[in-house]
Design a protein around this nucleic acid. Sequence first.
DNA 1: CCCTTACTCAAGCATCTGCTTTATCAAGCG
DNA 2: CGCTTGATAAAGCAGATGCTTGAGTAAGGG
Lengths: 115, 115
Amino acid sequence: MASITEDQRLDAVFTALSDPTRRDIVARLSAGEATVKELAERYEMSMQAVSQHIGVLERSGLVSRGRHRQTRPCRLEPAALAVAVSWIEQSRRTWAARMDRLETRLADLQQGAGR
Amino acid sequence: MASITEDQRLDAVFTALSDPTRRDIVARLSAGEATVKELAERYEMSMQAVSQHIGVLERSGLVSRGRHRQTRPCRLEPAALAVAVSWIEQSRRTWAARMDRLETRLADLQQGAGR
DNA sequence: CCCTTACTCAAGCATCTGCTTTATCAAGCG
DNA sequence: CGCTTGATAAAGCAGATGCTTGAGTAAGGG
């Protein structure tokens, strides 16, 4: 079994979001499905290039591809976005907690010096 | 003036977070400052390699470097993390709003069919 | 003063990215 | 059936990335 680690999932999501075209594709898909051709026209880019961007987004779990006639409509999978947010929030909580402790200690020190 | 666009800032932040070593550096720094040498020992990596990772994090605004004796203590700048979260939340809000509208329309259709 | 410590700069190198071009495939149309 | 449309596959290429080695610099210590 080649199960994916949490680190690899985060790698894939942040790598996918590090390109402005792919971020715009995510923003576009948050408003509804789109085909490869529609996206290619939007970015004045070849369908092959878009298809490869979709591949990156698909491997990260951010986007999935369906089938409808000859088209492969792409839709957003917001669960993968939640993975990225929760990782960031974890760091921010730790940092905020440390700041709180520092302030408490500073207040203690000032009170001690004031006596 | 070569002012940085919002897109370039997001590029830099997501690119910085796309590497597992750099994510771990961010997590480590959220618990307090660290020197290049300390990080190099932690990851069993050369100081040069760590210094380059710090450079990527610094250019993204996620980390800043100070000076203390011979060391260059690194500290987290959480404001840059907020930029990434707010971008993601924007997409999620749009998606959530679309889902609400779809549900409303579905409910309307069912009510219409029930009469 | 030399020597060590902590770190950065610069060049080199293997690998990865983003895009291109060419070729191929699957679905529908006349 | 052939032809068009929407999309993927494969190969190639310029540029970026992650790490290395070698050289250099700033701050202390003996």
